[in-house]
Design a binder for these strands. Structure first.
Lengths: 127, 127
DNA sequence: TTTGACTATTGACATAGTGACTATAGTCTG
DNA sequence: CAGACTATAGTCACTATGTCAATAGTCAAA
């Protein structure tokens, strides 16, 4: 049996074994924690996390997935835009919980990376 | 095949956002650095890196991919096994270089995770 | 010697995730 | 009006992964 972190029913994203998986979704949720925004704007905020080169298409898809799972909700904003209508996303309560869990998961990922890095330097006889 | 891993040289390469991805391949290369082994054995060694729940099938596939790219090489070992013949993998020189690059990449991933974790704790008003 | 547990690798098919290209459409500036 | 920028989404091809199962050798107990 796999030690997956199975909670939250949305069948979708199977993070599976991979400790150090996508940073995109957690980064989006983290941004949304500071206030609702639309995908295009979020895409620009990703630079803060070093995710500046994530394709826009992927940001939108991630948001659609997050919404499908109930972790964010969206509404159209038709005025006050600098272009066509925007779909503005907001964190749901469940999303807030997920974000919390996700952060714990990331701490594990970081620990796994550390173990690997240490093993490399050890067996490498130091650089 | 495994398109990515544009690594080495070209600063460009599509990466960038995919920071914290697979630990499996680097972990395999890291293990192989300490001596050649077969997939089944490697699969057991993965526990050291916290990757105990990676499906065997995936380990084999990863090794096939690594070999296809020239980063490891393999030979059959028919005697001295505790079962059927084993395919024993060894790091190539290119694999050694890749491992080095990969570790640098992992340090970046680690930093990205840190940034995210910090942003979370900051905007979260601390837990 | 047959059975079952463990070792060991791989094939095949379905499905999920991604990249690249394309379509649509509103706003703003000149 | 043209053209740049804002803003979101469809589609298709390719890749990665999950899952089930096939194959096969060794070893120890019944």
């Amino acid at each position: 049996m796999h030690g997956r972190h199975g909670h939250r029913g949305g069948g979708g994203r199977g993070a599976g074994y991979g400790r150090a998986d996508h940073l995109l979704e957690p980064a989006l949720l983290c941004s949304l924690q500071q206030g609702a925004t639309h995908g295009y704007g979020l895409s620009e905020q990703l630079a803060e996390f070093g995710l500046e080169s994530v394709p826009l298409r992927r940001v939108y898809r991630a948001l659609q997935g997050l919404e499908g799972a109930g972790w964010v909700s969206s509404d159209w904003e038709t005025s006050q835009t600098q272009g066509p209508p925007r779909r503005v996303y907001a964190l749901t309560l469940e999303g807030r919980q997920l974000l919390h869990d996700w952060m714990a998961h990331l701490r594990e990922s970081r620990a796994a990376i550390d173990r690997l890095l240490e093993a490399y330097e050890r067996s490498n006889g130091r650089a």
